[in-house]
Design a protein around this nucleic acid. Structure first.
Length: 597
DNA sequence: CCGACAGCCCAACATT
DNA sequence: AATGTTGGGCTG
């Protein structure tokens, strides 16, 4: 068994009451207390035990009990569960490194530490085992804030200062609260009235465009129809912080949109009936613009400034990341009904101007005789553009649009089918950028992913168009091999690698309109006594018999529906084969005639 | 009291 | 059998 580190002292107590007193002593003493789920469990539990079982007075308990939070009377309690739960933090600070918000999953993904697993239930552990278990938990929890030179604490501190909120609130609340507090504070500082949400809505109304997706409030970004095929020498240009830049340059805010001045009504937002004030600067435009400029012009360059010490560079980097998180959300909040300065026309105008910007840029590129092969929201993919053409386009954008358009990345070549948000880009060093492809999605069986990874690796080795023929041959082989493996049912002793992994979006009973397959599998598990919650990952395989799915734990090799998996192999690879001019059915040896049989 | 936004792809389900 | 809807996973 593992040993406790030699510098760990284990203290024994002969009563729970003494133990609680000791813990409370620490809670009265430490300036910061970190937990993972302390709001809902640890601190709440301690509070109730102290109050109800040991008759302690509230004044003796260092914990302040809230409805959903537990704060400390002396120090700052940060519940890291809430912080890592934050979607904006997950995406922009940790780029989706972790999916499940459990101490084990986050610890493993972020600091490479896992919880200790025992064969027996916690109640049967020896004291030493329990100490080991607890020590590891606290080690992970602490490491989640100390890693990377205290990155998480610095991030919380930076947001605390931008949003002017206590650290307790910053670590628990979402990005819309941060932005709200930031904007509210500036209203007060300028002695401005903070409007009621209903008043903004009544005065500025709702949206004027029709969303492409049913159920959405307004029309969003443009996605350019890709030019299918393999394209060598591709430069990807994008606008730096497109939406925040638009908010800044086009004076967007609840005050300026649909302002009362007649003379502003000419200042229309393209493709809408909205107009924007030409007389007075909106506060949001000013503030979001200021944050954007601070990030782009000060914190980002400083973070890369080699003449500064590493510590200082890292601090600048933390701030620029904090600003990035806030800026990325700064447009979306105006379209969120829960936001206190909710103003749909502002969100709508931002997106509309974005469409105008990207459309004009594409037109200009074509005017400069550059091939635009794809684009999404704020980016354009240019094939075979010269340095000169790229510079000209960038200068044009700065001059005519007032927007910074730069080369974000270059691909040796890229692979597009006719599908949007779905492509491969091969970097000059041979590494591969895969976007939106089925073969990379996390719910897809490992068995299929492996073949996709092989193909990816092979594509990375292709340097020029002439080398493609050889690569195509090998890719055909990769696919055929995998197909034959399936047909001959060679996937191992257990069907583990054939499992799909899908997250339960809600508790199984809450699916009333349809019963998706992962829910069918989940219901089987629940009948066996598993407790299933929203967010749980369900692993299941496809079988021949009804109900066509089975939790992977219960499935045996013989019942696997091989044809279904062939179908998945097909749809995974057809996204790439389309572009390479290859045919799946032909690869797996079906003649044209057999396909119709 | 937890919730930033829209657009796209795919498979399976439900409805006609 | 064709069509629309739902749900999950993704891009930006």
């Amino acid at each position: 068994m593992e040993q406790l580190p030699s510098d760990v002292d284990v203290e024994y107590y002969d009563s729970e009451e003494k133990l609680i007193h000791k813990i409370f002593g620490a809670l009265w003493d430490y300036p910061f207390v970190l937990t993972f789920n302390g709001d809902d469990f640890d601190l709440r539990y301690l509070y109730h035990r102290a109050l109800n079982h040991f008759g302690m007075k509230r004044s003796q308990i260092p914990i302040e009990l809230g409805r959903r939070v537990c704060l400390l009377k002396y120090g700052v309690h940060i519940d890291l569960y809430k912080f890592f739960f934050n979607r904006a933090i997950q995406i922009y600070a940790f780029s989706q490194k972790y999916r499940n918000i459990t101490l084990n999953a986050v610890g493993k993904a972020v600091v490479g530490l896992e919880k200790i697993e025992f064969e027996k239930p916690l109640s049967e552990l020896t004291y030493t085992e329990l100490a080991l278990y607890n020590f590891r938990d606290s080690e992970i929890t602490l490491a989640l804030t100390t890693f990377d030179d205290d990155l998480v604490m610095k991030l919380i501190l930076a947001i605390t200062r931008i949003a002017r909120m206590p650290m307790e609130d910053v670590s628990r609340q979402g990005v819309s609260r941060w932005i709200r507090n930031f904007l509210h504070h500036e209203h007060r500082r300028k002695n401005m009235l903070i409007p009621n949400a209903e008043d903004i809505l009544a005065l500025k109304g709702t949206t004027a465009t029709k969303a492409i997706i049913k159920g959405k409030k307004y029309k969003g970004a443009i996605v350019v129809e890709p030019v299918p095929g393999v394209h060598f020498n591709v430069a990807v240009m994008d606008f730096a912080s497109l939406y925040p830049s638009i908010i800044k340059i086009h004076n967007l805010g609840y005050q300026s949109i649909l302002c009362p001045h007649d003379e502003c009504k000419e200042n229309k937002v393209p493709e809408t009936t909205h107009w924007i004030c030409t007389k007075k600067r909106a506060l949001e435009s000013l503030l979001i613009g200021a944050l954007r400029d601070l990030r782009v012009r000060w914190y980002k360059p400083k973070a890369k400034d080699e003449t500064l010490s590493n510590e200082l560079q890292s601090w600048y980097n933390v701030i620029q990341s904090a600003l990035k998180v806030i800026l990325n959300a700064s447009y979306g909040v105006f379209g969120a009904a829960t936001f206190s300065l909710y103003c749909p026309p502002v969100a709508e105008a931002t997106a509309a101007i974005g469409r105008h910007v990207i459309t004009q840029t594409i037109n200009k590129a074509r005017e400069l005789e550059i091939d635009v092969i794809y684009g999404d929201t704020d980016s354009i993919f240019l094939r075979g553009a010269s340095q000169d053409q790229i510079e000209t386009l960038g200068e044009w954008s700065a001059k005519e649009l007032g927007m910074e358009l730069d080369v974000d990345k270059s691909y040796r070549y890229s692979v597009f089918s006719s599908r949007k948000k779905n492509y491969l880009g091969i970097f000059p060093d041979g590494s591969v950028d895969v976007k939106g492809m089925t073969g990379k999605k996390r719910h897809i069986p490992v068995f299929i992913k492996k073949a996709f990874d092989q193909m990816e690796e092979r594509l990375g080795k292709v340097e020029s168009p002439t080398e493609f023929e050889e690569a195509k041959k090998e890719i055909r082989k990769i696919i055929r091999d995998r197909y034959l493996q399936l047909k001959q049912r060679r996937w191992g002793d257990r069907p583990d690698e054939l499992a799909f992994h899908v997250v339960l979006g809600k508790v199984p009973e809450a699916y009333t309109k349809t019963t998706p397959q992962h829910v069918r599998a989940a219901l089987v598990l629940r009948d066996m006594g598993y407790d299933l919650k929203a967010g749980d990952l369900i692993s299941f395989v496809k079988i021949v018999k009804e109900p066509r799915v089975k939790p992977v734990q219960l499935a045996s090799n013989s019942e696997i529906d091989v044809e279904k998996y062939v179908g998945y192999l097909h749809s995974t690879f057809v996204q790439v084969l389309d572009a390479l001019g290859l045919d799946f059915d032909e690869i797996i040896g079906l003649t044209k005639l057999e396909r119709f049989m």
